[in-house]
Structures are given as C-alpha cells and as structure tokens.
Design a binder for these strands. Structure first.
Length: 731
DNA sequence: CCGATTTGTATTTTT
DNA sequence: TACAAATCGG
C-alpha cells in the first residue's frame, strides 16, 4: 500500500524518515495525526516493525483510540500489540507489572483529587499546622509542581530549611508521601514519578522496556512536563527512535507543569535531530487562519512560523457585542437556528468558553429553544457521589489497606458508624500501626467501643469480607451488582425515592454499562484494570461523537478537536484573558495561546461574542471587550448587523427573534389528551404559566415531566397524572 | 448518631 | 452564586 499519496512534501518526509530522533513542529490543523498514523502504518508494513515494539503516547485516551482505529484501518490488520495511551495509562501498565520492586503492592489504588485533599487534611492536622494558613489545595499544588520537577521532600526541606512556611510544606510533602504508601496508593503525579523510580531502582526493568520500544511517538509534546520528558528520554535512550510532535503556540498547560523548554532541550539531548515543520493548514478558511495568526503574533516567546492554507477565503469572522450573558446565549441560539435552516447539523456547532461556569446560561437557553446539546466537563460523571462511593467500595476490596476509601464508605449507606466511633478506631490503628480494615477484624482489641457500634462494624466487615471472597468468581459487571446489593446501596436509594435518588440510580446503571463495555473491549481485564481505566478517564474521553448535538466545552478541553462552526463566547477582559493573568506577561501569553487554540478549532465559521455586563459569582459588573479582539485587524471582522441586511439596529435583531419565539406561546387552551405530551410540547401550568417539556421519563405507571418555565421559575419536575397542566397549541 | 440549617468561603484550566 | 463545611437540635 501507498502511505504517502495525498500528503504534502513535508508530511511525506516525516512519514518516511528513516531512523533517529525526529521533531515535528506541527501547526494547528496541519495534519499531524495523519502523519503519525501513516508513519506507524509505514513502519509496520514496509519496515516490518513488530507492533509490540511501538509506543505511542497521546494526550487523551480518546486520541489514543482514534489513532489505533486509523492505523488499523490503514493496515487492515491486528495492531493490538501497539502500546498506545496517555502517559498515565502507560505508566499504570508498567507499574502493575513491577511496582513491588519499589515496595508497593501491585494492587495499588489511584487517588484522585478528592482523595488527595482528604489525605492532605489528615497531614495538616497531624502536623498541628494552622489550617487557615496551610490550605490543602495550594499545598497539593506545590507538591504537584515539586513532583513534576522531580524534587524529593528531603531536597526541598534542605533547600528551604530557613523558610518556616516552605519547610513545613516540605514536611507535609514527606508525610503525604508516607501516608500514600501506607495506603498503598499513588496519586496522578506518582504514576510518572514512581515509574521513573522503578527504572532507577531496577535497571533490568528499564532495559526490558528500552529494548521493547524500538519506536516511540509523543503527541502534544508541548504539554509534557519535566518528569514526563525524563521518562521518554530514558525509554528512548537505547534506540533513539523518538518522534515528538508539538506546537509551541498551543502550549496551554503551563499551570500544570508543561514545560516549553522540553522542545528546546530536545535538540540538545538528542543530537542529530531531524526537524520538520508542518505549516500548511488544512482545517480553516483563509479568514479564520488570518485572525489566528494576527492574535498569536503578539506573543514574544515563540518560534517564528507562518501557517498558511489553500482553503477558500470564507466568511469574515463575526464579532458581536451583546448587552449581557443572557442575550449572548440567545444570540448563539438564534444563529444556530438560522444556520440549521441553511443546512448545518447540530453537531457542527461548538460553544467554547474560558470557564465551565459560563455553560449554565447557554444550557438554559438551549433547553428552552429545544436545541440538542451536550456539555463536556463540568461535574464529571466519575466525580458524582454515587459513582465515587461504588468506586471506593471496589478500591477497598481490591486494596484493603486503602483507608481513605474505607472511610468514605464505612457509613454509606448509614450504618450507625459515626465520627466518634471512627475517631477511636483510627487512633487505635495508628497506635498499632495497621490499616483500619485490618484492626476492624479484631474489634475487641479496640478500647471504648460501644456494643452497638461493634455490631454495626461487624456487619460491615462481614459484607466486605464476603465480597472479597467472591471477587474472583464472577464478571466485573456481576461483581459490581453484587456489591450494590450486599451493601444495600441500591435499596437505600430506592427507599429515598425522589428525583435526586432516581438520577443517582440512573447514573449507577450507566456505570454498570461502562463496566460491561469494558469487559467487551478487554476480555482479559480484571477489576484492577477496570479501576485503573476508570480513574484515568477524562471528560473528552467519555463524549461520543456523531451524536446529533451541539457541543459546549472549555477551550482547554477543545484542544485537538475541530468544528465547522465555532462560537467563542465571553471574550472580555477579566474573563478571557482571565483576571488573574492580567498583570503577568507570561500568563497573558498563555491566555493568548489559549485564544489561538480556540480560534483554530473553527473550520468554516467563527463567531466571537462579548457581553457589556456580566455577573460572576453573584456580582454584576461592566466589562470591556477582550484585548485579543483588539488585536484582530478590523478588515478581517464584521458584525451580524453589517453582514446581513436586517437594518441598522442589532439590538432589534435580537429582540425581534425573541418576540417571534414568544408569540408561539400564546395560550390556546385545548382539551387534548395529556398523553400527547412529548418533548418540546408547550404546556400551561395553573400556577407557573407557560413552559416547554424538555424531558419525559417513565415512572411506574406514570410519567415524570421536566418542564422549563420562564424565569424566574425555571426547571420543574412534575408527574403527568397529577400536574395541573394543559397542552398549548403552537402557532 | 443523624439530619437540617446556617454559615462561610472560594471561585481557571485537568491527566 | 453555589457549594461545602460547621453547627445545632432532635
């Protein structure tokens, strides 16, 4: 097969590059994924490289899966042996094999942010530090940076011995690590750090992987941090066939330790690096690309490059000023409706914002308008209470020394084991230096426990012991169901029987189907693998494409994606760029890169909006258009007022559309049967007036309706049989 | 010990 | 604003 037809010269060069280090500087939309997949396919097919000798590291699991599919498509063969995944998932895979060599158990837990915070709270308390000065969140931030930079607690303490605060942070760091180890747990950063530690501790292990990975690929190289770079440097040290792809203009994770100097170091660490620049953009129109180029050129710290495209000129970029965030949302909704008439599908649209909080207004308006949408991010599926509870049960069963998980669920559902009891147990466990679960096995040794408490605990221990026993005997799905049954988790929720508990049950059902899905895709996978996969999943990973919905997401999570029509909203000073960045040149440059990423997501049409008044966290203030808008030459932009013939008052445009929408709501009472109610039906409620049905769920014999009423009533949930509503005839 | 209420506080991005 | 932690009363 021909792997280079249809590629430009630069791309071909990258695909056919023989051996040795390769640095691809790939501008936005320059077809880097294409280059990567074609190169991998070429290596396997033409150069007869065994797939198991290839390692490809991507930024998200979703990107990894896509890459796998595309390579498989090119080859039409089995590529299951290729290691593809994020830094974190690759490290888990390595650690599951050999972490016992650095003193952990292979059944280790992975701690997420909440777990980390809980653990840090304990540390601060134990060190007798003032919790108003030592905030767990910021301490954890410090520690994370230290880990990224590969600085150990001891080093940090010694370096800062005369600085009281920093020394204490160092002490907390040390204690935090000690506790993680006691719990046989790793946090996200540890996954990288401990892999490095393993390689250092056991050269045989390192040697194995160095020999195995003859070809290594790293995507989104600009967003790797120091420790991640060190990891790939080590792995590639033997064969030096390291291919990294990155774009310094799209580096947007500096706050998380991403280190642009990695691109510079690369040439130093790998002499004779071949550098290939991909500068032809295949994604956007000339106008959109032009706007992007004009914005990003205001950054001083960047490699000079010039993206160009053969694509059509396209429409001018629309910059629209709106009175407030509500009107902004209406503007976007109106525009979407208009464009759908012209043939665009809902899935063609993306609404990009700087902060997750901005999604709410859009959500409300889209519901009212009946525009299907999905939100990426916000409260994540795996962050929901019920999901975290189940996960805590599973983690405990898998790793019984995981005190953090145990404490999360020992009284969930309520078993009468409260703070007082737990205090006594923890104190005793500390004294004897054992895990909580272990001391719970010998209750009579723990002083001062009431008989009642003892009985409750006995019940709990019995359930968990029993679950541990049967863990191996069934599928993951069956086991999760068994856990839910034995712990009475489902029963308690069913007893509660309200809207909240029903949503939770639904989420649990979805979680079970996630497990089923996992088992189908990983027939060999066990509970540990499942837990690791779930803990390392990001939001973007979870969103399926091709659903016929518009997408709302932050600019950060939009990285790597593209959409025919992009609405870049909330472009105001203080919001984008965010106000914390206003007085700091390097942070401003990161905001500008973020803006560049946002603009370059658009293929055909780009709308940029800003509101004159915005309410953030309860206070309303006037806001100025973002400086990034000023950086765009005026001849490249327009307004809807200019570009359409709808008169010279653009406020009128919005209002007119608004009023037409509302006129439909005129109450026309009808005797129609309530059974005709469906999503989108307008109804008149005795007390709340006109609303639109946005969701219908079956509930026993009845139906539960979610109805969106006009402000200030908002969303309400009602039972069809008893709700005092009438259907309103449209038009 | 539990649940409800009040109080307070933090508001960027996330593997 | 909105959510979580702290506090209070049963």
């Amino acid at each position: 097969m021909d792997y280079i037809s249809g590629l430009n010269d630069r791309q071909k060069e990258a695909v056919l590059h023989p051996e040795g280090p390769l640095l691809i500087l790939a501008g936005a939309g320059s077809g880097k994924t294409r280059v990567l997949t074609h190169r991998i396919a070429y290596l396997i097919e033409e150069r007869k490289i065994f797939p198991g000798n290839i390692l490809a590291i991507t930024f998200t699991n979703k990107a990894a899966n896509e890459m796998k599919e595309r390579v498989a498509e090119l080859l039409g063969g089995d590529i299951g042996y290729i290691w593809m995944g994020t830094f974190h998932s690759i490290c888990v895979r390595i650690l599951r094999q050999d972490i016992d060599k650095i003193g952990y158990d292979r059944s280790f837990s992975i701690y997420d942010r909440d777990d980390q915070i809980t653990l840090m709270k304990e540390c601060i308390k134990e060190q007798n530090l003032n919790k108003d000065i030592y905030k767990e969140r910021s301490i954890l931030g410090n520690i994370s940076s230290l880990k990224d930079a590969m600085i150990s607690p001891d080093t940090y303490i010694n370096q800062n011995y005369n600085d009281y605060y920093r020394r204490n942070v160092g002490e907390l760091y040390a204690l935090y690590q000690k506790k993680l180890k006691q719990n046989n747990a790793l946090d996200f950063d540890d996954l990288i750090i401990k892999t490095l530690e393993l390689f250092r501790a056991d050269p045989m292990v390192l040697d194995y992987y160095q020999k195995k990975f003859k070809y290594i690929f790293v995507d989104e190289f600009q967003d790797t941090n120091k420790s991640q770079y060190e990891l790939i440097r080590l792995l590639a040290d033997k064969h030096k066939n390291l291919c990294v792809v990155g774009d310094d203009d799209q580096s947007i994770y500096k706050f998380r330790g991403a280190d642009i100097t990695n691109i510079l170091n690369f040439e130093k660490d790998f002499p004779n690096t071949k550098i290939i620049k991909l500068e032809q953009n295949y994604r956007s129109t000339k106008n959109i690309l032009n706007v992007a180029n004009h914005v990003i050129k205001n950054n001083s710290e960047r490699k000079d490059k010039s993206l160009w495209t053969d694509n059509e000129e396209g429409n001018l970029v629309v910059v629209e000023t709106l009175p407030d965030s509500q009107e902004e949302a209406y503007f976007v909704a109106n525009m979407i409706e208009k464009l759908m008439v012209e043939g665009y599908k809902p899935s063609d649209f993306a609404i990009l914002y700087r902060t997750n909080a901005q999604s709410r207004t859009f959500e409300e308006v889209f519901i009212k308008r009946g525009i299907p949408y999905k939100i990426v991010g916000g409260l994540r599926f795996y962050d929901r209470k019920e999901i975290k509870d189940i996960l805590a049960y599973l983690k405990l069963i898998q790793n019984p020394v995981d005190d953090i998980s145990l404490k999360r669920i020992i009284n969930v559902p309520k078993r009468g084991i409260g703070n007082a009891t737990m205090g006594k147990i923890e104190q005793y466990a500390n004294e004897v230096g054992e895990s909580i679960y272990s001391v719970l096995q010998k209750l009579d040794d723990i002083p001062d426990l009431s008989t009642r408490a003892k009985n409750s605990i006995k019940g709990f221990v019995e359930i968990v012991n029993n679950l541990m026993r049967i863990k191996e005997q069934m599928s993951i799905k069956d086991f999760i169901e068994e856990v839910l049954k034995e712990t009475n988790y489902i029963k308690e929720l069913e007893k509660q029987d309200d809207i909240e508990s029903r949503t939770r049950l639904e989420n649990i059902r979805e979680f079970i189907s996630v497990a089923v899905d996992f088992e189908v895709k990983n027939p060999e996978g066990n509970l540990e693998d499942f837990l690791a996969t779930v803990s390392l999943l990001s939001d973007v990973d979870k969103t399926e494409d091709l659903k016929n919905t518009a997408t709302m997401l932050t600019v950060h999570s939009a990285k790597g994606l593209e959409f025919p029509v992009v609405f870049l909203v909330g472009m105001e000073e203080g919001l984008f760029p965010i106000f914390r960045a206003l007085d700091n040149e390097s942070e401003l440059e990161e905001e500008r890169r973020l803006c560049y990423v946002a603009i370059t997501r658009a293929q055909k049409l780009l709308f940029i909006t800003h509101a004159k008044i915005r309410t953030i966290y309860g206070n309303t203030s006037y806001s100025l258009p973002s400086r990034f808008i000023d950086e765009i030459p005026k001849n490249l932009i327009t307004t809807t007022e200019e570009s359409s013939n709808l008169g010279n008052n653009k406020r009128r445009l919005v209002n007119i559309v608004d009023r037409t929408k509302r006129r439909k709501n005129n109450t026309v009472k009808s005797q129609e049967n309530k059974d005709k109610v469906q999503v989108g039906t307008k109804v008149n409620h005795k007390k709340w007036g006109i609303g639109t049905v946005v969701q219908i769920k079956n509930k026993d014999e009845d139906k539960e309706l979610v109805i969106a009423f006009n402000e200030p009533i908002g969303l309400k949930r009602l039972l069809l049989s008893i709700a005092p509503i009438e259907i309103v005839k449209g038009d």
